[in-house]
């Protein structure tokens, strides 16, 4: 079974703000911790609602992001999305750390 992970981006890093991101990295990850497929999605403009909607329609299981509003965080967790926020680092490195099961809220990944 694959896990769908979403990372809002700012350039190649995890976006400092969930609501202001206009690019999203979507990754399909295997149970063994490998990235099976990656897709970069460009949004027409920054919007927390749009990213949430995309997460729902794409059946995302986990979101890794920087700063996020409590309201949006509560909505996503209520929808059974695992949100790991306050993360700083390059998206690919962060994703590797997540897949190894060592990524936690507030982590700064060098």
């Amino acid at each position: 079974m694959t896990t769908k992970v979403m990372i809002p981006l700012h350039k190649d890093e995890v976006a400092p703000r969930f609501d202001l991101s206009t690019e999203v990295l979507m990754a399909w990850c295997s149970d063994e911790g490998n990235v099976e497929q990656e897709k970069l999605l460009i949004l027409p403009g920054p919007s927390a609602e749009r990213i949430c909607h995309m997460a729902m329609t794409e059946h995302v299981q986990a979101i890794i992001c920087g700063g996020i509003d409590q309201e949006v965080f509560d909505y996503l967790t209520w929808k059974n999305v695992d949100v790991i926020d306050d993360v700083i680092g390059r998206a690919t490195t962060v994703l590797r750390r997540y897949l190894s099961g060592r990524l936690h809220r507030g982590d700064i990944v060098p």
Binding site: R17, P46, G67
Partner: peptide, 19 residues
């Protein structure tokens, strides 16, 4: 202490930092 060496936009996370 944890902010040292980080890019300011990752520390302050203001709208102005991004836009």
């Amino acid at each position: 202490l944890t902010t040292e060496g980080l890019h300011c936009r990752n520390v302050v996370r203001s709208r102005a930092c991004i836009t």
